[in-house]
Simulated scan of single mutants.
Amino acid sequence: MKRILIPTDFTKYADEAIEVGAQIAKKHDCEIVLIHMLELPRQMNDAITGETSIPEIMLFKQKADETLKNIKNRPYLSGIHITEVVRLDSAYNGINNYSKQNSIDLIIMGSHGASGINEILIGSNTEKVVRQSETPVLVIKNKIDNFNISNIVFASDFSKETKKAFQKFLDFAKLFNSKVNLVTICTPNSFKSTSAARKIASEFVADFDMPEYTFETYNESNIEKGILNYSNEKNTDLIVFCTHGRTALNHFFTGSISEDLVNHATKPVLTFKI
Rank of each mutant, 00 (worst) to 15 (best):
129 V>R: 01
130 V>T: 11
132 Q>M: 10
132 Q>K: 14
132 Q>T: 08
133 S>H: 04
133 S>W: 03
139 V>H: 01
140 I>E: 00
140 I>V: 15
141 K>P: 00
145 D>P: 07
150 S>I: 05
154 F>D: 02
157 D>C: 15
160 K>F: 08
161 E>S: 09
162 T>L: 07
162 T>Y: 03
164 K>V: 15
165 A>Q: 01
167 Q>V: 05
167 Q>E: 07
169 F>A: 03
170 L>M: 04
170 L>C: 03
171 D>W: 12
174 K>N: 11
177 N>A: 14
180 V>W: 00
181 N>S: 08
186 C>I: 10
188 P>Q: 12
189 N>Q: 09
190 S>R: 14
194 T>F: 15
197 A>T: 04
197 A>P: 01
197 A>E: 02
201 A>C: 12
204 F>R: 00
206 A>R: 06
206 A>N: 13
207 D>E: 07
210 M>K: 06
211 P>W: 05
212 E>K: 09
215 F>V: 03
215 F>I: 03
215 F>N: 01
216 E>F: 06
216 E>N: 11
219 N>L: 08
220 E>W: 13
222 N>F: 07
231 S>Q: 07
231 S>M: 08
233 E>A: 13
234 K>E: 14
235 N>L: 13
236 T>R: 02
237 D>G: 08
239 I>D: 01
240 V>P: 00
243 T>P: 01
243 T>M: 08
245 G>E: 11
246 R>M: 12
248 A>C: 15
249 L>D: 15
